[in-house]
């Protein structure tokens, strides 16, 4: 089984910890001039998202986690899983609710998502940085008010609620930044 020595630790490295795949966020080498060296690491459990701190004796080895991030296209939901397709191999994989997390509100068919696979199974997903959504409900637009000041809530076709400028109307398409949930611009068809 593949393993990493603490000397190879760096942020982004995927390791197994208590049976779960984890990603190293931070690694600090701590060593008294005379005495035992340690690696103090912050790791994120990729299944639960929980961040924990752990100390290793330097030189020890840890099992590597077979975790890869893959760009995949979202196809459909069958009531149990959300199916993504690899654009080259056309392989389809289903992600469960846990792997989708609270990203579902950004999910649109045919969008390219990052799917994190552990031993080939999706364990986490993340949406593209920007998505284009259609507004299904909002207060009537105020024509001519392009100041951008104020704003109002708008419900989108995916269920996401985004704060938009006053001039935006039902049926219009908008670009949204999924990292902060903020409106970016209107999109012309």
């Amino acid at each position: 089984m593949a393993s990493y020595s603490t000397n190879e630790f760096k942020s982004g490295l995927k390791i197994m910890m208590d049976g779960d795949p984890c990603s190293i966020i931070e690694n600090e080498f701590v060593k008294p001039g005379k005495g035992q060296a340690f690696n103090r690491v912050k790791i994120r459990n990729l299944k639960t998202g929980r961040v924990l701190e752990k100390t290793f004796k330097s030189g020890d080895s840890v099992e590597a986690a077979d975790v890869v991030d893959t760009e995949m296209q979202y196809l459909y939901n069958d009531g149990e899983a959300w199916y993504f397709m690899h654009p080259e191999s056309f392989e389809q994989l289903g992600a469960d609710e846990k792997a989708m997390g609270d990203n579902l509100k950004w999910l649109k068919e045919q969008d390219m998502w990052t799917v994190t696979l552990w031993n080939g199974v999706p364990i986490a997903t993340s949406p593209p940085n920007h998505v284009v959504l259609t507004i299904t409900d909002t207060d009537p637009g105020v024509r001519g008010d392009t100041s951008g000041g104020g704003g109002k809530p708008a419900t989108c076709d995916t269920g996401a609620v985004v704060r938009v400028p006053l001039f935006v109307d039902i049926g219009e398409m908008i670009k949204v930044d999924t990292r902060n949930g903020e409106y970016v611009s209107r999109v012309k068809e």
Partner: peptide, 21 residues
């Protein structure tokens, strides 16, 4: 709350862990 693995039963090592952490 320090989660440490693999440290031998050697008192100096544990003293150094407490010192550094």
């Amino acid at each position: 709350g320090i989660d440490i693995s693999g440290l031998e039963d050697d008192i100096a090592g544990w003293q150094q862990l407490i010192m550094t952490h």
